[in-house]
Amino acid sequence: MKAKVKKILALLDEYYPKDIKCYLNYETPWQLLIATILSAQCTDDRVNMVTKDLFKKYPSLLDFAEADLEELEQDIKSTGFYRNKAKNIILCAQKLLEKYKGEVPKNIDELTQLAGVGRKTANVILGNIYGIPSIVVDTHVKRVSYRLGLTKFTDPTKIEFDLMKILPEEHWIRYNTQIIAHGRAICTARNPKCEKCFLLPYCQYGLEERMGAVSER
């Protein structure tokens, strides 16, 4: 496994930029936190469309803390699960102001105590805001890591801990962004482009699919 991981990471570095890229638009740590809460079961592109106007309407954390629940629900409706998200955003903003003086904590235990914040959201903050090595298991990282055989689990937390064991810590953050890029361009959920994938020799799923296609001829 160690040799396989080393080759996969080298190829990812060859084909994708090494710099960290966050696909959510934000200007402040609390804006990224809110955007990431909105991104649950929603595409980053949709979230960016919503937050473009949302952060103008609510320019401060206090504005979110004092927001009218029903009005905020309508503001974010297109992101899905808007009732829970609106409630969590207001509660999260209130706690950030009351307990942390408006600062977003840099500790995963404190972050996950905020309303609507799970390990995925917390790790987005740790990696993108504070540069703390973290692994964000979004839908792309979950799918591609499983297909590559880097984990046998489908539970995001178990996948996160599996990846932490086998990936060098200095590669954690850029693994997130590189795999997201690969998942969008090549290893899509439906009809993955296995024939174009530079990771195919190391991909359990891709090799099995290829063998299946050959045997059907």
Rank of each mutant, 00 (worst) to 15 (best):
C203V: 12
L69P: 15
D162N: 04
L150Y: 02
F64Q: 13
S134C: 04
K57H: 02
K2C: 12
P192R: 04
P168T: 07
Y146T: 03
Y175R: 01
L200V: 10
Y175K: 02
M211K: 11
V144P: 06
L96S: 03
T121G: 13
C42P: 04
N107H: 07
T157A: 13
E169W: 12
A86T: 01
A40I: 00
K158R: 12
E209L: 12
E70C: 07
T154P: 10
R147Y: 08
D162W: 13
S78D: 03
K4Y: 00
N176G: 12
R147I: 08
L97T: 14
S39F: 01
P105V: 07
I173L: 07
L72N: 04
A115W: 06
I166M: 02
T112A: 06
I34V: 14
S78E: 04
K87H: 05
S134Q: 10
K158T: 11
L96W: 05
I166S: 00
G116D: 05
M49H: 09
F55P: 14
I90F: 01
D19K: 08
T177V: 09
P105M: 05
S134N: 14
I173D: 09
K7F: 06
D109T: 14
E71Y: 02
Y16G: 03
P59S: 06
T177Q: 15
D162L: 15
N84D: 07
F198W: 06
G206I: 12
I108C: 08
D45G: 04
K7P: 05
L61F: 02
P192H: 06
I89M: 06
D45F: 00
Y202M: 15
I76N: 07
I125H: 13
C197I: 14
K85A: 01
D75P: 10
V47C: 04
I173Y: 09
I180Y: 15
N176V: 03
V104Q: 03
W30C: 03
T28I: 02
D44K: 04
G131I: 03
K196V: 09
D68L: 09
D45R: 15
Y82F: 11
E208K: 12
R147S: 06
L167Y: 00
Y82K: 03
V136T: 14
A65H: 02
P201A: 10
L199R: 00
K85M: 02
I180V: 14
I108D: 15
I180Q: 11
S215M: 13
D109W: 10
S145T: 00
K57P: 10
Y82T: 01
E169F: 09
